[in-house]
Nucleic acid binder design. Structure first.
Lengths: 162, 162
DNA sequence: TCAAAAAAGTTTGTGTGCAATTAAATCGTT
DNA sequence: AACGATTTAATTGCACACAAACTTTTTTGA
């Protein structure tokens, strides 16, 4: 009876899942030479826009919690791209600040997005259209995920084991 | 100069990455009661469509390799949902076959997709539209990802660690 | 004022993803 | 039949994701 709804082809979730992985794979060829993983690249994008942000600020933009970001930031620090330090005004927080090497990497990274579009064979218009479609999903998914128990933003909500 | 292209807001990759994670988070609330993770659920979707598939066959449909699938399949076996065995006709292969418990779980899982759409607040038409848009990206991303993972002019391109 | 609560990160444990390597079985060609 | 090439999974090593527990610091409120 309900076989149809369970077909892989009929689900929205799977193409999203598959595309996200394929995108990071496509990025890898361009990020490997920079010594970056895709999540590390995302963190740098955030810091290149505004330097010296706290873990929680970075997390709000990337929808990642500190449990994920702490190791990523430590690796970036270990690789000499950022420095983490606790500001004296609030010693709970940890700010990440770009080093000279971290700032310098921005120039090389600037070539990556266009290379990717080129690899994938998308023009700017179509890219923008798809981007807006997918982006429109985010608030609704946040609502759905938050409602049921993930820590999307601040609120605890979850009590059950994975 | 090239600041604009590096803005998080202008990238297609990030919404895809964010949505994929938010989707699995939204699924978690419905899959936890079934004792499944999202990748485990995907494997079962494939087996519910056709039982007894080889690791490579499952991998082709989910775009996952044996390095990822082997542990997932072992956990499904450990949880009593499938049995893995090597067919005598070709002892290299490993077929995964649903147990009675694995087949039984399909009835409960059949409620999940609709619950999700309900949580997210999407109607069927809009879902299908977005799904087709995202699905259209897959072949192009595969081409882009494959192009760089395999070989260029006969020589292996990849030698650097991640 | 000061103990309780809240906030901010870190740590721990589990489960993917994926590249690279390894091991075993099968196939193709001689 | 022999043997190198190919196929198929499993293994290894590293890097996310994320829930839950924990530590330290700051804020609150009776």
């Amino acid at each position: 009876m309900s076989d149809e709804v369970l077909r892989l082809d009929n689900q929205l979730c799977f193409p999203l899942y598959a595309c996200a992985r394929l995108v990071t794979q496509a990025y890898r060829a361009h990020l490997d030479p920079l010594g970056l993983t895709y999540p590390q690249y995302l963190v740098l994008l955030v810091l290149w826009e505004r330097d010296g942000q706290k873990v929680s600020e970075i997390g709000e933009q990337l929808f990642l919690d500190s449990g994920t970001l702490t190791p990523v930031l430590k690796r970036l620090e270990h690789n000499g791209l950022i420095i983490r330090h606790r500001p004296s005004t609030d010693e709970r927080a940890v700010e990440s600040r770009l080093t000279a090497a971290g700032r310098k990497l921005k120039r090389r990274a600037a070539k990556v997005p266009l290379s990717l579009l080129c690899d994938v064979g998308l023009d700017l218009q179509e890219t923008a259209r798809i981007r807006d479609t997918v982006r429109g999903l985010i608030p609704r998914l946040q609502h759905a995920a938050r409602r049921q128990g993930a820590t999307v933003e601040g609120r605890p909500v979850r009590k059950q084991k994975r």
